[in-house]
């Protein structure tokens, strides 16, 4: 599904990732952990094609090197990134934004636009599943949303767009227990043999609700340690200094 080789990424001229390698198979859930400022969010942005990043190396997604593709081209191929701080867009209402995003992706893939009744039916189902208030559909994207509403809105977008590769940047930050469960429910609903998920998090608590196949530690621009989900528990108990020293 995703194979990253020798990836160098810089932001505003500063080198952040240095020769990073990562393999993610179809259907797997991987977690990226690391100290602040080690390049976790930069990795996700580089995969998603953010304008902020300048990347060199190989990012192979479904056997295609996507490093030269724009963010919208990558999204149309099935890559979705949930932002740590979702951007507010005054004047663009959420329902219009969702429908436009779906139709633009379909257009890029040479498919017909989604029929309005089907779109509305699917949207209603997903919102009920996430226990979301319908009023947000008429509000501007993320404007005036609480922290929990913003994260749920990201999950709603993810569910509506049905991506193949999901990148979640600190999706669990600032959430209360109920909101965290609701977000985890949305993530688990998308776990399948065809969908892979890469999650950046600082805490073990999300892993109580989402089953991870691998946990990686990103340090000084590289993956320095990978193991099963128990690594997250070990990090929480011992801290990065001890775990990195022992490896």
């Amino acid at each position: 599904m995703l194979s990253i080789q020798n990836l160098d990424v810089s932001i505003a001229g500063k080198e952040v990732l240095k020769g990073l390698d990562l393999e993610l198979k179809a259907g797997e859930v991987h977690i990226i952990m690391g100290l602040n400022g080690t390049g976790k969010s930069t990795l996700l942005k580089a995969i998603a094609g953010s304008y902020e990043t300048s990347a060199q190396g190989e990012i192979n997604f479904n056997d295609e090197n996507i490093i030269e593709l724009t963010a919208d081209q990558r999204a149309s191929r099935g890559i979705f990134m949930s932002f740590q701080n979702p951007i507010e867009i005054p004047g663009v209402n959420t329902i219009y934004f969702l429908k436009t995003a779906i139709n633009e992706q379909r257009k890029a893939r040479g498919e017909e636009e989604v029929a309005s009744p089907l779109f509305m039916k699917t949207l209603k189902e997903k919102m009920e599943f996430l226990q979301m208030d319908k009023s947000i559909l008429q509000r501007s994207v993320n404007v005036g949303f609480s922290g929990g509403e913003k994260k749920k809105s990201e999950i709603l977008q993810m569910m509506m767009l049905s991506p193949k590769l999901i990148l979640l940047d600190e999706i669990d930050s600032g959430l209360d227990i109920d909101a965290l469960k609701s977000v985890a429910k949305g993530i688990n609903a998308l776990v399948s043999k065809d969908t892979s998920i890469l999650i950046v998090t600082h805490y073990n608590r999300l892993l109580e609700y989402v089953k991870a196949d691998r946990v990686h530690i990103l340090h000084e621009g590289k993956i320095v340690k990978s193991a099963d989900a128990s690594l997250a528990m070990e990090l929480e108990q011992k801290g990065y200094e001890d775990v990195l020293a022992s490896s």
Binding site: Y51, D72, I87, V92, Q157
Partner: peptide, 21 residues
């Protein structure tokens, strides 16, 4: 613009949406 593009909306369309907003 980057946020809209990350959802599959092409650059020119994203600009038009923000201008309309």
């Amino acid at each position: 613009i980057d946020y809209l593009r990350s959802r599959g909306i092409a650059y020119e369309k994203a600009k038009a949406m923000l201008t309309s907003a």
